[in-house]
């Protein structure tokens, strides 16, 4: 049995966009407490239209900073993993709120040079997870770590598999909000 995620996605795209529009303001107000510098090795950089920054182009995040955010664990089938594989991590949506991101799409780049553009709508329409662990173990580079964007389209049967598969980018290096 797959555990359903706690967040119920809101389908009204304009409403969410408006919310997202106001988010930077909120985060500017909260900028009194700036995002701390990563203490460990940086595993993800978020650049572009982000409200908070801890370096010149955006936010650099280490493993601890990411695991400090609200965690979810989901059982998701992918073509590359054995059935019943569980993924732990944070909802991409949450992450984007955390960094105060605003825009229409996210340009994601992997360590092996693979890159893909994820529309912001996907964050609304699907539960997308920035997975950090697989079956309870922290993902290493050789197991598609350190982070992997995984779509959970089980409740969205109309989504075309091949397109979503191509957007499940692993060995993620940077996210550019634009």
């Amino acid at each position: 049995m797959r555990r359903k995620i706690a967040f119920k996605s809101i389908r009204l795209t304009p409403a969410l966009l408006i919310t997202l529009w106001f988010l930077p303001g909120l985060w500017l107000a909260a900028a009194d407490q700036p995002v701390p510098q990563p203490s460990g090795p940086v595993i993800l950089e978020i650049t572009g239209n982000v409200a908070v920054k801890n370096f010149e182009h955006g936010v650099q995040l280490d493993y601890d900073m990411l695991t400090a955010l609200e965690q979810v664990e989901l059982e998701i089938d992918t073509p590359w993993t054995k059935p019943g594989t569980r993924f732990g991590g944070i909802l991409t949506r949450e992450l984007m709120e955390f960094v105060g991101a605003s825009g229409e799409e996210i340009h994601a780049v992997a360590m092996d040079g693979y890159s893909i553009t994820i529309p912001f709508d996907d964050l609304v329409n699907f539960d997308t997870v920035l997975a950090l662990s697989m079956n309870g173990e922290r993902m290493r580079l050789r197991t598609k770590g350190p982070s992997w964007v995984i779509y959970h389209p089980d409740d969205k049967p109309e989504a075309p598999d091949t397109v979503l598969n191509s957007r499940m980018i692993w060995q993620l290096k940077t996210l550019e909000v634009r």
Binding site: M111, D112, R140, L141, R142, T143, K144, W170, Q171
Partner: peptide, 11 residues
């Protein structure tokens, strides 16, 4: 790093 990525594909 390169080795890990290569391994990941074997996985």
């Amino acid at each position: 790093n390169d080795f890990d990525i290569y391994w990941s594909w074997y996985n």
